[in-house]
Design a protein around this nucleic acid. Structure first.
Lengths: 103, 103
DNA sequence: TATCTTCATAAGTCATGGCTTATTATAAGC
DNA sequence: GCTTATAATAAGCCATGACTTATGAAGATA
């Protein structure tokens, strides 16, 4: 499974995207997230693990708590994918127009 | 299921993303895709249906064939989501810095 | 030390989704 | 008109993944 796969798969689940978007507002502990999102604490931990492996979030130990926050790395990857795709598609479009012009 | 859900779910599957990227190069028929991607023709059709419902792809009848091509609408949605997220995160970051400064 | 909180992991359940083969519908070509 | 090509749908199989409860580990608090 590539990094890109992990990235898209991580964002595919709505609950997980919800968690991610909440972390976008501000850093939160697992318990805070569990209070805000209607699933159990273990479910939150599992989602966070997936997000972390996709490099979308980081965590930091603070006492017994673990504070999660956004890691821009994953988003950067996503933007790269989008930009590359856009460029390629634009190029393909132009070459199609060019081919048509030559007919 | 929201449109956004459909969008992310559609891009989550690697095979489907492969199909989508091939269509990024140029428009193709179902049979062409089936020849290029190592799954059966019905599987291709099923993937195309998902991509179409996410507005990532359009189709057009040409004789007995169906020509699929990129529909920029879905990508636009994805970019919007990314941009909005980025802006919000930036704002959150700035307000965090501001709060820290006041301490 | 004993207890309480916080979080991760284990194990099991259930729904979803991606694939297959079989079939059907429509258009093309002889 | 009959056969071939193209593509969508139906039905069924199986793996994956999202959730649950139960449990354990590590830090905070009395």
């Amino acid at each position: 499974m590539t990094y890109e796969d992990r990235l898209f798969a991580a964002l595919a689940d709505p609950t997980r995207r919800g968690i991610f978007e909440r972390l976008g507002e501000r850093r939160r502990s697992v318990a805070e997230l569990a209070r805000a999102v209607p699933v159990s604490q273990p479910a939150i931990s599992q989602h966070l693990k997936v997000l972390k492996e996709a490099r979308l979030v980081r965590d930091e130990a603070v006492g017994a708590r673990r504070i999660y926050s956004i890691d821009p790395a994953g988003l950067g990857q996503l933007r790269q994918w989008l930009d590359r795709f856009w460029r390629e598609q634009l190029a393909a479009f132009e070459s199609a127009v060019e081919a048509e012009r030559r007919e």
